[in-house]
């Protein structure tokens, strides 16, 4: 990925007070959209995602000098985005896709009430299937499938073993496929 290749230079510029603002704008150009969609799939609605995205980038700006480079810059930012999303949900006591397993339909209700959700029956069905997965499976599936992150990157973000992630992902894929096939057979 082009943006990943730019990370070392970008990091140097972000740590240079004279270049920090310009580098931060470049960072926004590169990662704003990717982080937004990562957040959106956790907090569901656009308004919530917008709030969390701003908090995330403010934390990135303030914390860039404390980044110890134990992981790549983008996985560090994804981790901040993930933590901010979870913190936002806990603070506002919002049910997300990640805690739907208690049997309520808050996730789908929130989704359908979001003015920036215009999904049809098929898309709602996919959300419904995803929401039946375990918390870990949902996260891994969305990060791998929609965010195009590698298992190693997801491992760094969630601080979970690679093999565990792979197991969760393939299990999630299998479950979704079975649900879709089952739904197709019922329809026919």
């Amino acid at each position: 990925m082009k943006s990943k290749n730019r990370e070392p230079d970008l990091l140097k510029e972000l740590r240079n007070p004279k270049l920090k603002n310009k580098a931060f704008k470049d960072l926004l150009d590169l990662y704003q959209e990717r982080l937004y969609w990562h957040i959106r799939k956790i907090v569901i609605t656009h308004d919530n995602a917008n709030d969390v995205l701003q908090d995330t980038f403010i934390k990135i700006y303030k914390g860039i000098n404390n980044f110890k480079e134990q992981s790549s810059l983008h996985t560090w930012m994804y981790r901040i985005a993930y933590n901010e999303s979870i913190r936002f949900l806990e603070k506002n006591k919002i049910k997300s896709s990640l805690n739907l397993n208690d049997g309520n339909n808050d996730y789908l209700n929130n989704l359908s009430q979001d003015v920036y959700f215009d999904g049809d029956e098929i898309q709602l069905k996919l959300h419904s299937i995803i929401s039946k997965l375990s918390e870990k499976q949902q996260l891994v599936f969305q990060m791998k499938y929609f965010d195009d992150l590698s298992f190693r990157e997801i491992s760094e973000i969630l601080d979970v073993n690679d093999n565990t992630l792979k197991s969760s992902y393939y299990s999630a894929v299998k479950t979704i496929e079975e649900e879709i096939v089952s739904d197709t057979l019922q329809t026919n």
Partner: peptide, 15 residues
């Protein structure tokens, strides 16, 4: 795939 949309010119304004 997910039916999720954003306002027009959202990312520019958000930046």
């Amino acid at each position: 795939y997910l039916g999720m949309d954003v306002p027009d010119d959202y990312f520019s304004k958000s930046k």
